[in-house]
């Protein structure tokens, strides 16, 4: 068996991503849990790089590090207790969850090994990134068109859910109070 550098890199990424992923639910500190998940994502990003998907690899690293940085804030603010000082167990139905996890692995793993995968058809184009750019602009334009409303809906729903003061609290019943009444002044128009 000849092991190439790519194989070594892949196995390294594989071990790091799974171990870091498991650490998320093992460590006591919320910051450590979040950043363990970030490490897991970075390892998967590197694995994508090794599989000839440079853009996907880099963008996974970019997006996930950014999102985990925000995630850490939510973890710290909303966990309601302080595991940085005291070890905690915030787990319920531990045994059945482990059983579910193991079952999932056996099922998916068996599928991965036993399914007779077809052989590769086609080869990657020279420039995967620009092929992707052309795909989202031409043959798969529908994805872009669908994603716009989805993101607008996410922004609107997210703001509605997460803010406890609406425009009527800020601008008055007739929406004509200027400057707006905010707990803390700032921003544009002050």
């Amino acid at each position: 068996m000849n092991l190439s550098l790519v194989d070594v890199g892949f196995w390294l990424c594989a071990v790091v991503s799974v171990v870091a992923g498991a650490l998320v639910f093992y460590v006591d500190s919320m910051a450590r849990a979040t950043y363990a998940l970030a490490v897991s994502f970075v390892a998967v990003g590197v694995a994508l790089l090794l599989m000839g998907q440079a853009y996907m690899g880099v963008i996974v690293i970019l997006m996930m590090v950014m999102e985990m940085a925000v995630m850490a804030v939510y973890m710290v603010m909303f966990m309601g207790m302080n595991p940085a000082l005291m070890p905690m167990s915030m787990v319920h139905s531990h045994r059945s969850s482990i059983a579910a996890g193991v079952g999932t692995f056996l099922l998916l793993g068996a599928g991965a090994v036993l399914v007779p995968w077809p052989t590769r058809r086609g080869a990657p184009t020279g420039d995967v990134t620009s092929a992707l750019g052309e795909a989202i602009m031409e043959s798969h334009m529908i994805v872009m068109i669908a994603m716009g409303p989805v993101m607008v809906a996410t922004i609107v729903a997210g703001v509605v859910l997460s803010s406890h003061r609406t425009r009527y609290d800020r601008l008055g019943d007739d929406l004509d109070r200027r400057p707006a009444d905010d707990p803390q002044p700032g921003g544009v128009g002050r």
Binding site: D169, L171, D182, P183
Partner: peptide, 11 residues
């Protein structure tokens, strides 16, 4: 729209 809802203010 989010700005009018005060999404970018400290709240």
């Amino acid at each position: 729209w989010a700005r009018r809802e005060g999404a970018f203010r400290w709240a």
